[in-house]
Amino acid sequence: MTPSTVAHDTFVIERIYPVPVSQVFGAWADPVLKARWFAGSADALGAGYDLDFRVGGREVNRGGPPGGPVYSYQSEFHDIVPERRIIYTYEMYADETRISVSVATVQFRDREATTQLVMTEQGAFLDGHDTAAQREEGTRSLLDSLAATLNRGGS
């Protein structure tokens, strides 16, 4: 069994974007634009990725390496001040197992036609679930079930 452990961490990431704050904020608010940078492709919208950008609204994303666990992200928006800040909480799951719970704060600062973005994540990371050993185990059990399926078919 996995021991019941919690690691807490906070990290802050800053970026300066050479466009007005309205555009940067728009890329967080618009589902098509956000799917492109957050989920990696506009095609993800409605196919694993969804965004309901309002207080109380939710955002979901699913994906993962082939043969590995399906990682899913589920968030809820708690505070939205247009062009100023977004505060949301999110949970991450590896298959059915919750692996982290975080508070994320995104702040937008207007800097004369450029925008400073400051993203702060405060997280509780649970049980060290997402380890290489577990990923390997996930792959192995998939290969085992594939082998079982092939054996059934071949008999």
Binding site: V19, V24, G26, A27, D30, L33, R36, W37
Partner: peptide, 15 residues
Amino acid sequence: LDRLGDILNEGAPTE
């Protein structure tokens, strides 16, 4: 956030 920067740098004409 780097990918976001790439999209913003395109000028986002439809935005």
